[in-house]
Simulated assay, not measured.
Amino acid sequence: MNRRVAALFLGHLANDSLYSSLPPLLPLLVAAYGLSTALVGAIPAVYMMVASFLQPLFGQLFDKRGKTWMMSVGLLMGGLAVMSVGYMESYPAVVAAAAIGGLGSALFHPVATSLSSSVEGDDRASNVSVFMLGGNLGLSVGPLIILSTLTTFHIRGTFVALVLPAIAALILFRLRSRLSKPSMERAEGVRVNRLALLLVLLASVLRGTATITLITFLPLYITSLGLSVGVGGLMLTVMLLSGGVGMLVAGRIGDRFNKMLSASALLFSAGPAVLLFSGTSIETVWLLAGVMGFTLMSAHPLIVVIAHELLPERTGLASALTYGVAFGLSNLFIPLIGSAIDAVGFSRTLQAMAALPVLAGLATLLTYRMRVVRREPASASTV
């Protein structure tokens, strides 16, 4: 693995471990402040919303200034914020700390994602896939990191949250001169079709909604079948691990074949797997969980690289839209999907959800047809 890609991988792992460190703290915060479920649930929600919807601001700033030290600042800001949660004296202060942590994540993500596709060579999709895999691993190890000290130091054990981000921030800061803003250039006389950009964002939101829905409700669906919580957790693990493998495989495929067609094929394959997931035998469900994770999650790095190639001079903004904003918008649909499950049941809702990856694949396929247009004096469809 390229040294710079490895550093970005570590940075992403450290950054995303901070968000997943918050849920294990929630029971302690309930006990400390007497919070309701709604109030305590607002803490990670505030973190996520700030981290998602402020990314375009910092993405555009990076496009203009190209300051790679923004990653180190974001990591330290996030680490200090999550650490401070265990030392705050009031609920509003905890929410403020969560918002600052989200701000740090918003600062880190568009810069690091943009840089992951700028490392020299023809392995842009593979590099972005490795970078994203770091984030997935970070979400997995975050609870383990924070729990390692909570048993001994109780809520004051949050100091451990700063360790990994501080190490990653130092490494990235020392490599800042070797990490440069992407230098992809657009061909002369060619401008990007605005509709193509909207289609890429739509594909990212649809894919994200399907993925987050499955991650959120898969364990509940499995327990509704009469199986144990442990089985649901193991099946979710199978899905996430398959997604990690899929990212690495898709990165290689995307570097050797057309990225848009590759992403479309993966998304089209996810639709039948989601459709068949409900109402089939438990043995088949295990297989389908792996297929869903592989196809849905592997398409994401390809979509991000497609956005980079559509906006070669503004990769920070492209990263923010297809990563942060898409993730935030996808999460907004989860309560509505939960209401649909309450109204019509898991099976019908999951069957309807099968349309989302298919529509995402169609949007990506349409992007392939209209990704660029020649500059026309009176054209209203270009930017």
Score class of each variant (00 low, 15 high):
residue 3 R to L: 13
residue 7 A to E: 09
residue 18 L to D: 06
residue 19 Y to G: 01
residue 20 S to W: 07
residue 21 S to D: 10
residue 24 P to D: 09
residue 26 L to H: 04
residue 26 L to F: 08
residue 26 L to V: 07
residue 30 V to G: 01
residue 32 A to E: 15
residue 33 Y to Q: 05
residue 35 L to T: 09
residue 35 L to D: 06
residue 41 G to S: 10
residue 43 I to M: 08
residue 43 I to Y: 03
residue 44 P to M: 08
residue 44 P to G: 07
residue 44 P to H: 04
residue 46 V to Q: 03
residue 49 M to E: 01
residue 49 M to F: 14
residue 52 S to N: 14
residue 57 L to D: 02
residue 58 F to G: 04
residue 58 F to Q: 03
residue 58 F to K: 00
residue 60 Q to G: 13
residue 60 Q to L: 15
residue 61 L to H: 10
residue 61 L to T: 07
residue 65 R to W: 09
residue 72 S to G: 04
residue 75 L to H: 00
residue 76 L to P: 00
residue 81 A to W: 01
residue 87 Y to F: 14
residue 89 E to L: 13
residue 89 E to F: 08
residue 92 P to M: 02
residue 95 V to E: 07
residue 96 A to Y: 02
residue 99 A to G: 11
residue 101 G to K: 00
residue 104 G to A: 08
residue 105 S to Q: 09
residue 105 S to W: 00
residue 118 S to Q: 05
residue 121 G to T: 12
residue 132 M to S: 14
residue 133 L to G: 13
residue 139 L to R: 06
residue 140 S to W: 07
residue 140 S to P: 00
residue 141 V to A: 08
residue 142 G to P: 03
residue 142 G to A: 10
residue 143 P to E: 10
residue 144 L to W: 04
residue 144 L to M: 15
residue 145 I to W: 04
residue 147 L to P: 00
residue 148 S to W: 05
residue 149 T to V: 09
residue 152 T to C: 04
residue 152 T to W: 15
residue 154 H to A: 14
residue 158 T to L: 04
residue 160 V to R: 02
residue 160 V to M: 05
residue 163 V to C: 11
residue 164 L to Y: 03
residue 164 L to R: 01
residue 175 L to K: 02
residue 175 L to T: 04
residue 175 L to C: 06
residue 176 R to N: 13
residue 177 S to F: 06
residue 182 P to H: 07
residue 182 P to F: 12
residue 190 V to L: 15
residue 191 R to A: 12
residue 192 V to Q: 11
residue 194 R to M: 06
residue 194 R to E: 00
residue 198 L to Y: 15
residue 199 L to R: 13
residue 200 V to D: 01
residue 207 R to A: 07
residue 210 A to L: 09
residue 213 T to D: 06
residue 216 T to S: 13
residue 217 F to R: 01
residue 225 L to R: 15
residue 225 L to A: 12
residue 232 G to E: 08
residue 233 G to I: 12
residue 234 L to A: 12
residue 241 L to M: 13
residue 244 G to V: 13
residue 244 G to M: 15
residue 246 G to Q: 06
residue 248 L to Q: 10
residue 251 G to V: 07
residue 260 M to Q: 14
residue 266 L to Y: 06
residue 266 L to E: 01
residue 268 F to I: 14
residue 271 G to D: 00
residue 277 F to N: 06
residue 280 T to N: 10
residue 282 I to V: 13
residue 290 G to N: 09
residue 291 V to L: 15
residue 297 M to Q: 11
residue 300 H to Y: 13
residue 301 P to R: 02
residue 302 L to K: 04
residue 302 L to W: 03
residue 302 L to N: 05
residue 308 H to C: 03
residue 308 H to M: 12
residue 308 H to I: 10
residue 312 P to W: 08
residue 316 G to N: 08
residue 317 L to N: 01
residue 322 T to L: 05
residue 322 T to I: 06
residue 328 G to F: 09
residue 328 G to S: 09
residue 329 L to V: 15
residue 331 N to I: 02
residue 332 L to H: 10
residue 337 I to Q: 09
residue 339 S to L: 14
residue 340 A to D: 08
residue 344 V to S: 11
residue 345 G to R: 07
residue 346 F to T: 03
residue 348 R to A: 15
residue 350 L to C: 00
residue 351 Q to V: 11
residue 354 A to Y: 05
residue 355 A to G: 07
residue 360 A to D: 05
residue 361 G to S: 09
residue 361 G to E: 08
residue 369 R to S: 13
residue 370 M to Q: 11
residue 371 R to V: 05
residue 371 R to P: 00
residue 372 V to T: 14
residue 373 V to I: 14
residue 374 R to L: 15
residue 381 S to Q: 13
residue 382 T to H: 09
residue 383 V to I: 11
residue 383 V to P: 02
